[in-house]
Design a protein around this nucleic acid. Structure first.
Lengths: 170, 170
DNA sequence: TAAAACTTTCATAAATAATTGAAAGTTCGA
DNA sequence: TCGAACTTTCAATTATTTATGAAAGTTTTA
């Protein structure tokens, strides 16, 4: 396989992976492109390399910056902005985990809170009881995951690695 | 809040959560409905409760069975099939992890394998070297996650809990 | 074996999400 | 302050994903 071909393949498949991870396909492709680029690239460069529109390029880069996966920088003597990706996989993973915690876990936890306010009367005592029990179980689990992700966000990779090796022992 | 209202709210929000998790919205709603139903339900029941078409009901239930989140059962003396959801959150989470490992991790690992076959010539030695280094890092990370998920799939909840508490200590 | 009861399929339709590109906005240097 | 260089916005379009429901298929019972 030629190098260019390999790069394209990686970009395409990172793109489809992304679409399963709450990162849109193009967004993930831009990230992939920047990950394998040796130099920071301008919006124009990205646009050309992936053959996408100016607007889409801008939106994708913007979201990647929001997610903390790409950073903007300025080259001396250049007017244009350049972008470079976070290449460290540990950081990439924790950034994604952080965003998803915010976007997904938070809303479900809030619904679980609300739903527990249900009125219990004589008539529905048993049914409501079972419902509440189920809701509590879910909330319990969700909040464990939530705390875990919050921790992960602060943690560093070495700590995680050592945990992982304990994890794999048994 | 009334009980019915609370149930609807839970179903709706479980649905939108699902759509972020590779489970389609309706599929997740059916799962939610079955989780809070005290009795197993028939396809007809589900169709009525969620106001969705016969075809969609069938497809959603079928996928849930594939994912291992719902099981089919027969009531004595009834011709119809009934369905009941896995209600234990630990099992729900491990089933989802198992499917996603299969659907997402596996393909990217295979691409990483392929891409490492890239031809290195004198001309692109340096560039190819950096590319390969990057691919190796990603593969390394991915395979750690992969092994972790494989382990999770076999593990039981108590073990996970004790790990989690170690995890939360530091 | 017929027909009723139930389940599955699949072409088409509807809903949702992503993309385009021209126009408007912004920033910077002279 | 002007205008060139660059960035952002957003209404309209295009692509992708889901849902529908009538028709075909299957199983069971009488």
């Amino acid at each position: 396989m030629q190098l260019d071909e390999a790069k394209e393949k990686f970009i395409a498949s990172w793109g489809s992976l992304g679409s399963n991870w709450g990162v849109s396909r193009t967004m993930a492709q831009v990230h992939a492109l920047l990950m394998i680029s040796e130099e920071p690239m301008s919006a124009e460069d990205v646009m050309g390399a992936l053959n996408i529109s100016r607007g889409n390029t801008n939106m994708s880069i913007r979201s990647l910056i929001d997610w903390g996966l790409v950073e903007k920088l300025h080259k001396l003597g250049e007017r244009k902005e350049f972008f470079q990706a976070e290449k460290d996989m540990w950081k990439v993973a924790t950034r994604i985990a952080r965003e998803r915690r915010k976007r997904e876990l938070a809303p479900i936890m809030s619904v679980l809170e609300q739903v527990k306010e249900v009125e219990v009367s004589d008539g529905n005592k048993q049914e409501a009881g079972k419902f509440l029990k189920q809701m509590n179980e879910i909330e319990n689990f969700a909040s464990r995951i939530d705390r875990m992700m919050a921790k992960l966000d602060q943690a560093d990779e070495r700590w995680f690695s050592s945990l992982l090796s304990k994890f794999m022992k048994r």
